[in-house]
């Protein structure tokens, strides 16, 4: 009895940090489990406080409130466009920073770093100030949201792609040139395939940043409603349970992408080992 207690306390001591870490993860997942649970809730009244009854209705009819699905579509459109533009521009910048020597590198780095170190409320309000001052105050909407999203996604793309590019062995490109590949062929056969995972990661990050942004968007949206803005609006008057369906879907999709990438990586490693 005594010795098993000792053994337990020794085990506990050895695993204390791991247990603590797992508890933190549990903490991070509590609200998400509520989101998943509530996506199956059939509330008694409009103001929901608890899980009342199980239903699949929310999943079968996600667009019960058409304005929500409309907002989701808006967010996806903006997210895709912002991701494409930010990924292309940011990748070019990352190449410039890693592969080319030029004057003004410090200034370029500063401009790229600053948006990541600025509070969203400041970026949002300064963009609004610019739009109003330049006479676009009446035309806030899809276009201004897109401009803002490209702006704050850019820095994250540059940083992500730059890290991947900097980790690339310089010798590989030289080896390709030594093996009769022209500059263009070297880029297409060696550089691009090796940097691509970084670019893909940057694109995924951009999309989720754009899809999820509220503070900057809210200041520059005019009458256009994105999904986070829709949620903000209904938060005051009663949240339809379909919002949880969208939340759950986002969670599942991101898990599938991340786990899929990991499994793919492991399979490649194992394939012929």
């Amino acid at each position: 009895m005594n010795s098993s207690w000792q053994r337990f306390s020794r085990w506990l001591k050895a695993h204390l940090v791991l247990i603590g870490g797992l508890l933190v993860i549990v903490y991070m997942f509590i609200p998400i489990s509520v989101v998943v649970l509530m996506s199956f809730n059939k509330p008694d009244s409009k103001l929901v406080y608890k899980f009342d009854a199980f239903t699949l209705q929310n999943w079968l009819h996600p667009c019960a409130d058409p304005s929500m699905c409309h907002a989701v579509r808006r967010s996806i459109e903006i997210g895709l466009l912002a991701t494409i533009v930010a990924t292309v521009l940011g990748t070019l910048m990352a190449f410039a920073l890693v592969r080319h020597r030029f004057e003004g590198r410090g200034a370029a780095n500063l401009i790229i770093f600053m948006p990541m170190a600025s509070p969203e409320i400041v970026m949002g309000s300064s963009l609004l100030a610019l739009f109003v001052a330049s006479g676009f105050g009446g035309q806030l909407g899809f276009g201004t949201i897109l401009i803002a999203h490209i702006m704050f996604c850019l820095s994250f793309v540059v940083v992500t792609v730059r890290a991947r590019l900097a980790g690339l062995d310089n010798n590989l490109e030289q080896a390709a040139m030594d093996l009769y590949a022209t500059e263009a062929q070297t880029f297409r056969r060696i550089t691009f395939p090796l940097v691509f995972p970084g670019i893909l990661g940057a694109a995924l990050l951009s999309f989720s940043l754009s899809f999820d942004d509220f503070i900057i968007t809210n200041l520059n949206a005019g009458n256009t409603t994105t999904f986070p803005m829709y949620v903000w609006g209904v938060a005051q008057r009663g949240v339809p349970m379909q919002v949880n369906v969208i939340g759950t879907l986002m969670f599942i999709i991101s898990i599938v992408i991340v786990v899929g990438a990991e499994i793919n990586r492991r399979r490649q490693e194992k394939a012929l080992a």
Partner: peptide, 11 residues
């Protein structure tokens, strides 16, 4: 990372 991809407001 996963919670990070689930809507900030919904969470």
């Amino acid at each position: 990372i996963a919670p990070f991809f689930t809507s900030f407001l919904v969470r």
